[in-house]
Computed example of a mutant assay.
Amino acid sequence: MPPARSTAEPAAELVDLRTLTRRFARAGRLEAILLRPAQRAAAQPVSEARALAGRGLAGDHRAVCGRGARRRCAPHNPPGEPRMTALILGLLFFSTHSARIFAEDNRAQYIAHYGRAKWKLAYPLASAIGLGLIVWGYGAVRLDPLVLWAPATWTRHLAAVLTLPAFILIAAYVPGTRLRAKLGHPVVIGVQLWAVAHLLANGALADLLVFGCFLVWAIASFVAARRRDGAQRVVRGDGALGWDAVAVGGGAGVWFVFARHLHGVLFGVVPFG
C-alpha cells in the first residue's frame, strides 16, 4: 500500500533581504521583496517574507497557484539593462506627434517629396513603436524607481476620478459632438487632464519624465492647433447631443475596462485596489 500523501503546508523559513540576495546568480540591487497576492493585484514591497519550501514566498500568488510554480529570485536592476534607455527612445519615437507643432514645414516637405500615403504609413508606425517602448520601459523602470517625492494616498483615488473625464474628452473626438465643436481639440485637453492626474499620484523620476513630457506636448499641441484654426478660419458646427452621449458612454466604458482590468496587467498598479 503506497504511503499517504502529506497535505501539510511546507515548512516556512524567514528570509530577509541579505539572505535573499545571496541566492542571486548575478549581481543587482534589491531594495524590497515584491509580493503580489493575486494575479492582477498590485505588488506590495516588504522587507522580509516567509519562504515555503519548494513553493516560493508566502503571500505571493505564484506560491499557491497549485501547479508547483514558484517565484524565482532575480534582481530588479541588473547592470546594463536598458530600461530607461528604452523609455527615452519610446518618447522620442512618439514625438512624431509633435511634427505639426515644431516642424510643420519639414512635415510638408516630406509629404510633398514622398507622398501622403508614405507619411500616413511612417507616422503611425513610429508612434506604435514609441508607445510600445514607453509601456515596456515605464513598466520595467517602476520595478526599481528613483522616488523624488511621496504623494499622499488620496492622490491615487483623485487620479482615478480625474481620468474619467479625460477618457470622455478623448472619445469626444468623434465627429458631430458638441464637446468637439466647443473645445475644438478635446483629445489633447483629455491628455492634459490624464497627465496631470498621474503627476499628482506618482512621484518617481520615470513618472515625471513620461507624464511631464505628455503634459508639455498636449499643451503645445493645443496652442498650435488653435493657432492653425485661427489662421485657417476654421468654423465648426454646433454638434448633436446624441453624439455626445455616444462619446460619454464609450469613454466611460473604456475607462472602466482599462482601470479595472488592463491597468494592473500593463503597469502593475490597480487604481481601485
Rank of each mutant, 00 (worst) to 15 (best):
P3E: 15
T7E: 13
A8D: 10
A11Y: 02
E13P: 06
V15K: 05
D16T: 13
R18F: 06
R29Y: 05
A38L: 12
R40D: 14
A42H: 07
A43W: 13
A53E: 14
R55Y: 09
R55A: 11
R62P: 04
A63W: 03
V64A: 06
C65I: 15
G66C: 10
A69N: 15
R72F: 14
P75K: 02
G80H: 15
I88Q: 08
L91V: 06
S95N: 13
H97Q: 10
R100H: 13
I101Q: 01
D105Y: 09
Q109I: 14
I111K: 06
A112M: 05
R116T: 12
K118P: 07
L121G: 08
S127C: 12
G130I: 06
G132K: 04
V135G: 07
Y138R: 00
P145E: 03
V147K: 00
L148A: 00
W149C: 00
T153C: 00
A159G: 10
V161D: 02
I170P: 02
I170G: 00
A171M: 11
A172P: 03
A181H: 08
K182E: 05
K182C: 06
V196S: 00
G203R: 01
L205P: 03
A224H: 00
R227S: 04
R228V: 08
R233Y: 03
D238H: 11
G239H: 07
A240G: 04
A240D: 12
D244R: 02
V248F: 11
G250T: 06
V265Q: 09
F267H: 11
V270M: 13
